[in-house]
């Protein structure tokens, strides 16, 4: 069947089997292997993408179910060579080691800040409770999301986002 999904603002149309999962539809699109395919059982959160702005686990949604919906992947975060504040926060706070969980963590964090720009550490921990990181112990991830929240707030007040790269 032909399925047409808007991925990162571009229409992607392919002839697929109805059983194809969204994570594979995305990863088989040239240039979009940033979304990681992990546990395959909706437990680990490595495959999280945004569907109409809400984080979803792309290993547990059929691509066919996304026809007519907008999907955002980790590749959409960087714009014009500038990292998204959540990406920058992960860099500043050393929030990854192996990096396997990172795409899902970043998209989950992006969705959280879009809904709640000033989350507490507890709210961040709840938001990422569906994502598993086996390297960091989560502390630096929470710290990175806080970094992003604080720098986004500062940017909104005209202070600009510090570029410490």
């Amino acid at each position: 069947m032909d399925v047409s999904i808007v991925v990162n603002g571009k229409q992607v149309t392919r002839d697929i089997e109805p059983r194809q999962l969204l994570v594979h539809f995305i990863r088989e699109t040239p240039g979009l292997t940033g979304t990681h395919w992990g546990c395959d059982t909706s437990n680990c959160g490595a495959c999280v993408v945004l569907m109409d702005g809400a984080p979803v686990k792309s290993c547990t949604i059929l691509a066919a179910m996304c026809e007519g919906h907008e999907i955002r992947t980790v590749e959409s975060l960087e714009r014009d060579g500038r990292l998204d504040p959540v990406q920058q926060g992960f860099h500043e706070r050393h929030a990854l080691q192996c990096g396997f969980c990172t795409p899902g963590m970043l998209m989950t964090a992006r969705a959280l800040l879009d809904e709640n720009p000033d989350p507490t550490d507890e709210e961040i921990r709840i938001a990422i409770s569906g994502a598993i990181c086996r390297c960091t112990g989560y502390k630096n991830i929470v710290s990175a999301v806080r970094w992003a929240a604080e720098h986004e707030a500062a940017a909104k007040h005209g202070d600009g986002l510090r570029q410490e790269v």
């Binding site: 909706s42 959160g45 999280v48 569907m51 809400a54 984080p55 979803v56 686990k57 547990t60 949604i61 989950t108 709840i126 938001a127 409770s129 569906g130 994502a131």
Partner: peptide, 9 residues
């Protein structure tokens, strides 16, 4: 029930 991402679906 599950986690916030699963609860979206």
């Amino acid at each position: 029930i599950a986690d916030p991402v699963v609860r979206n679906r």
